[in-house]
Design a binder for these strands. Sequence first.
DNA 1: CCCTGATCTGTGCACGTTCACAGAACCGCC
DNA 2: GGCGGTTCTGTGAACGTGCACAGATCAGGG
Lengths: 346, 346
Amino acid sequence: MRGYGEDMGKASPRRKRATVHDVAMAAGVSRGTVSRVVNGERYVSDEARKAIEKAIVEVGYVPNTAARSLVMQRTQAVAFIVHEPDRLFVEDPNIGEILLGANAALSDADYQMVSLVVDSEKDTARVARYLQGGFADGAVIVSARQDDPITRVVERLDLPTAFVGHPPGVTAAWVGIDNHGSARAISERLLATGRSRIAMIAAALDRDSGVDRLAGFREALGDRFDPALVEPISHYSYTEGAAAMRALLERAPDVDGVFAASDAVAAGALETLRELGRRVPEDVGLVGFDDSAWARRCQPALSTVHQPAGGLGRAAAESVLAQIRGELPELGGILLESPVVWRESA
Amino acid sequence: MRGYGEDMGKASPRRKRATVHDVAMAAGVSRGTVSRVVNGERYVSDEARKAIEKAIVEVGYVPNTAARSLVMQRTQAVAFIVHEPDRLFVEDPNIGEILLGANAALSDADYQMVSLVVDSEKDTARVARYLQGGFADGAVIVSARQDDPITRVVERLDLPTAFVGHPPGVTAAWVGIDNHGSARAISERLLATGRSRIAMIAAALDRDSGVDRLAGFREALGDRFDPALVEPISHYSYTEGAAAMRALLERAPDVDGVFAASDAVAAGALETLRELGRRVPEDVGLVGFDDSAWARRCQPALSTVHQPAGGLGRAAAESVLAQIRGELPELGGILLESPVVWRESA
DNA sequence: CCCTGATCTGTGCACGTTCACAGAACCGCC
DNA sequence: GGCGGTTCTGTGAACGTGCACAGATCAGGG
């Protein structure tokens, strides 16, 4: 099947892509005019426009993104950076929804989303290099830690950025929910149902969300706050939640209310409670946080705080887009509503 | 810290990035030599190499990706395309793991992963345009449907591609599991535990996975297969699973075994069984498919088929990378092991 | 008849990189 | 000293696009 002497053999491994020049040739005009049509500018005669539009479909022209972004100094792409241990990325239902929300906002604005999972240090270097390579016009960053190298890179490049959640010490734009207030609200209602020995399984205290939820809990309980009834765990995970509940019951068998820092944690706790024969909500009231799929599927369904995950992603992406347009980011961040949802578990 | 009136005003909005030229100036050599150092070629004197390496960190040089991909005709990026209704993307635990597996393989090869969620028709057009724009050197495609426009675009561009799952009529590379064989295996063991009225909740019959699982079930049951005991649903979802189980029990109250097409479906079915007072596994044996987080957390834990989701993503990505290197894709696809896992539910 | 302004079109340059090529410097050897 | 080979370096393309600029054409008015 190798072609004969006809210069370029037929069935070449990959057909050369048509350029703006080919379109110009086919339409009998110059590159500049084609460029004007493609970018929808004024000052093009109807005749030329029609000929060019016809030529475009004929030769199958699609603009070369690399060339365009080289000359335009922008890529029409925004990075979605999630900084989590791999496992959690899968487990945490919020991240998927945040991703979809951000993706929707970016799609609407005709931007691409490049998602980067950074876990190991090697990944950190790779992502930093990538961002410095100028491959993205902005970044949405999820669950950054304190003193995060990625955060530093982004700040140094002063790339349009929005964080989901509010990493301490960062001045960039962020969107989030009022973890403190919501935690207080759900803890207060737990109190109002007549519980007296209320514990908390506090997770992710290296993150603002974890710290704030604990603070809200503490504030709600006031004098009745007992440090011995706080069980800290490292991640928002089911298994750690189950273990923490077990530890808590050993230490204080008389607990009658538990605020778990997330629905996954609550689901784990619920499992332990069931194993140890405690009825929920009769013996122990249990509440979670996130309003994820867990909450609705637990038996009994969890009372929890509704987290507008999709909205967070969308808002963060929109903030990045606004900054790309040259607008200044909102100072102090954006807070989205996160109402308490009451179900059967408390 | 701001400089004085030296031409370029102080605090300029964005500092111009250093180019290969700046490095050459600083090191007192030419562009070509810098390029050779950056790309690790031979024929560079130690002296020049040292001076250039020093200059690179001094001026903070990072290669411009757009310029490089323009001249190299490749982007060092692979698209990860997931074609699902948004909700399912979040619910389906496999997709997250597939994504991570693919991401890991691509990272190892120093490729970027661009993830594209296509749901609406608008998204289809956008993604097609994106791929035609030459922004990716290859594509991993998850859960394509029959007669998928994206599939057609990819074929037309003859872009290095690998599918996760085996869309009918597609000749490109794919990786998957033996849905047929695994479904048969788990159905046979269900039979072996002495069940006689065995039903199946069959999902996603517009996809190869759904069709194959049903076929495997049918083959295992042989003469005992009863079409009236097959309840079809459209997606692998919890809620549909719950509803299907209800319908099944109304139609045939004496079922004593159920093969649900996925763990999520099984979890829904389990919920219904519990509500209607059937004990699992005593009254009804129940098995799922996927070995997702659902399976371990159900009460009782589900017997199921282990699906190596991360491995599928990794294998698909590696196939794409191989094709980019110019190797021919494996004909007939790659099958990964998917062993049956026995737990308490059957 | 020329000038002014509006509309439309073509051309050269720049973006930052890689690659092919030409040439310089050095070595050892006849 | 000349010569072939190896090692090293600089230079001019090219990749495909957008943009600034210079012209071209045309209409209308003094």
